[in-house]
Design a protein around this nucleic acid. Structure first.
Lengths: 239, 239
DNA sequence: GCAAAAGTGTTAGGGTTACACCCATGC
DNA sequence: GCATGGGTGTAACCCTAACACTTTTGC
């Protein structure tokens, strides 16, 4: 199956060990939202050490490629998407975190809209897993996943990034379901609506949901110009 | 001056370029507090490319050393201190950030108490610089410094870490001056006292300041047990 | 008409902010 | 006694959280 450098980092086998002094990789926690669940895109590991466990998508960083570009490349190769939201979270550098040798890895998370892009990779070894139902992952990927999830949770409290997980037009109910899925809490519907309208992040499309078995809700889209005009609340603690 | 691997990463010269495919380093933003100013510990760069500019303290990560240990080692070698507060912030991986070749670097910041430890390194090329008076630094170290400062600013809003910058016993005035120096804002004295006593992080030592030309203030120390018992306020946004 | 979710306002409580006077000490 | 900063309380405001009924649509 080619040389070590032709494999993705998580396919490297113990017999590749001689190639490494310190290798450097990126791992992408690719979040999606579907059926009211937060999901993460995983790939089957073919390392014997990890016996068919699932792992995050990652790859070695090339000598002439910066970290963010490496993450975009992984995303592009695996999902066909560019122009996605991407944020660096943390770098994992434990000596024995990879069985094939020393691999330091920087974790990024990205937010993509499953509905518009799922067909592009439904036929390979990738799979969307509900974040809540994941018990084990290969390597230290469970730690990486939860570190990224915590970052996402705190990020959405002040920044309008969840829109990257939704179709262009969405109802307030969908938006609230998404917040509830990410934060793992239930929220009050009236307060949620009030807060979002106060934030001034939404633009009313003057359209209604279609094909719902109940009163249809209004559709909105994220209005980036309103956000860049508006100020993000900052609380200059501690007093 | 020895081989490339014997030099610290920021002393590497262009003629060392051949050694690199990708090298990996840590950079430490070492914060201190003195004379009501937030300071950072810097070292003179001897790269000709950077013509005597100041730079952060850093070093290459060894193949059998994890990232945090590498940071502790830099701190120990340079300041004689271990057991300091240390937090990873961000990894900087631009292709051309180091003139000697490709160096990816993970930034950590640490908080140390200048007053108790300054004598240990007053005689070498290290110097404490007021953060507010820094105009340029070697490499991308100014970006690294400000990234770490922003992390510190948000961190102290919810976590009791500033005590690492103070002597064991301190007055509320000193504590407030420290918060003001880090956050770059003025705060109301009465509200500051009220909030801190509510937080329940402080233990009254029943001692007073000495040798001050005015009414002496009470001395306190941080009470870790109170903190671990107490809950940190969390605001489950966005609603 | 019935089920299901959309849409809508008010109130109480808690936290934050703004603000002024007396007190203790050194000189 | 005077200069300096320590120590203290209250009131207004804002934000958050809790809470129930009517409306619209599909079936």
């Amino acid at each position: 199956m080619g040389t070590a450098l032709q494999r993705t980092i998580h396919q490297l086998r113990s017999e590749d060990r001689e190639f490494f002094q310190i290798a450097f990789s990126v791992d992408c926690v690719i979040f999606g939202f579907d059926k009211n669940e937060l999901k993460v895109l995983l790939i089957k590991s073919d390392l014997e050490e990890f016996n068919n466990q699932w792992s995050l998508l990652g790859d070695l960083v090339k000598p002439n490629e910066n970290l963010e570009n490496a993450s975009y490349r992984v995303l592009k190769e695996r999902t066909g998407l560019d122009d996605v939201y991407l944020e660096q979270v943390y770098t994992f550098g434990e000596v024995n975190r990879h069985p094939a040798g020393r691999v330091i890895s920087t974790a990024y998370y990205s937010l993509i809209n499953i509905k518009d892009h799922q067909p592009k990779f439904c036929d390979n070894e990738l799979h969307w897993h509900p974040v809540n139902e994941i018990s084990t992952l290969a390597f230290d990927h469970k730690t990486i996943l939860y570190t990224c999830l915590e970052r996402l949770q705190s990020k959405i409290e002040e920044h309008p990034i969840v829109f990257n997980l939704l179709p262009e037009k969405f109802s307030l109910r969908e938006l609230q379901n998404l917040y509830e899925a990410i934060l793992g809490v239930k929220m009050d519907r009236r307060n949620f609506r009030k807060k979002f309208f106060l934030m001034n992040w939404l633009e009313d499309m003057n359209e209604l949901e279609q094909d719902v078995p109940h009163r249809p809700g209004k559709l909105y889209r994220f209005n980036a110009s309103r956000f860049s005009n508006g100020k993000v609340k900052s609380t200059p603690m501690p007093v």
